[in-house]
Design a protein around this nucleic acid. Structure first.
Length: 208
DNA sequence: AGCACGATTAACT
DNA sequence: GTTAATCGTGCTC
C-alpha cells in the first residue's frame, strides 16, 4: 500500500497544496469495502474570509464551519439543489481555507463509477466537482470527515508528481458574481497534457 | 414563513 | 452558444 498524504501536507499554504495535489490519488473506501480511486487532475484554492469567492467570506455558519477545522478535514457542501462538492481543508485550524477537488482520472472501481454515472460517456464520469462526488458516493455524511485518521474512508495516496509543463494555472470557475481581483485570480490548477494519465490499457483523455 | 441565490450539470439550439 | 433543474442555506420580515 502506498503512503497516504499526511496532515503536515495539508497544513501548508493552500496554493502549494492545490498545486501538489495534482497527480495524487484520491481514495474512497465504500461501505462494502469497495475501493474507488482516481488521480487528481483539477483543483481550486479558496483562501480565507477576505477571498470573495470563498464561502468563508460570509463568516462562520453551520454550513461552512468545516473550513475552520484542522487541515485534512473534508468540507462537503450542497449547491444548486442537487450537487455535492468535496474540499480538503488546509492551513492551520481556525483559518478558513480549502482546496476544491474539481476532477479526477478514474483508476480503480471503474464498474461502480460507471453505475453511478449511468448514461454518461467515460470522459465525463469524474470531470467536474459534483460529478466526482456522485461517482465516488461522497455527500453530506462526509462533511467534517478527517482524511488523516487511519480509519478514514476518504484519503489521498502519494503518487507521481505532475510536471510543471503539464499544468495550466488560471482563474477559478463559476465566480461570475464575484468582485475582482478574486474573480480572476489564478487559483485553479489543472493537468492539461491530454495523455498525461494514460497507462496500460487505460486510454482516457483528460478534458476541460 | 418567505425568498433569492448558488465553487454545477445535462440537455438543447 | 443558452437554460431548466432543484433545494439547502442564510438572510429578511
Amino acid at each position: 500500500m502506498k503512503p497516504r498524504l499526511s496532515r503536515s501536507f495539508f497544513e501548508r499554504p493552500t496554493l502549494s497544496v492545490a498545486r501538489e495535489l495534482l497527480g495524487q490519488r484520491l481514495v474512497r473506501i465504500e461501505a462494502d469495502s469497495k475501493r474507488l480511486t482516481g488521480l487528481i487532475c483539477e483543483t481550486e484554492a479558496y483562501i480565507g474570509s477576505d477571498d470573495d469567492g470563498c464561502h468563508a467570506k460570509a463568516g462562520r455558519t453551520p454550513r461552512n464551519q468545516s473550513m475552520w477545522g484542522r487541515a485534512g478535514v473534508c468540507y462537503v457542501y450542497f449547491t444548486y439543489g442537487m450537487h455535492w462538492m468535496l474540499n480538503l481543508v488546509t492551513e492551520q485550524e481556525g483559518f478558513p481555507a480549502a482546496v476544491l477537488l474539481r476532477g479526477v482520472h478514474p483508476q480503480e472501481g471503474i464498474e461502480r463509477i460507471q453505475e453511478r454515472r449511468v448514461g454518461q460517456p467515460r470522459q465525463h464520469w469524474t470531470d467536474g466537482p459534483a460529478k466526482l462526488c456522485q461517482a465516488f458516493g461522497i455527500d453530506s455524511k462526509h462533511d467534517g470527515h478527517d482524511i488523516c485518521l487511519p480509519e478514514s474512508v476518504i484519503f489521498v495516496e502519494s503518487a507521481d508528481r505532475v510536471d510543471d509543463r503539464s499544468v495550466t494555472v488560471g482563474p477559478r470557475v463559476g465566480l461570475n458574481r464575484v468582485a475582482e481581483p478574486w474573480k480572476s485570480i489564478p487559483w485553479r490548477f489543472r493537468v492539461t497534457t491530454e495523455t498525461y494519465f494514460e497507462r496500460g490499457e487505460d486510454h482516457d483523455v483528460i478534458k476541460r
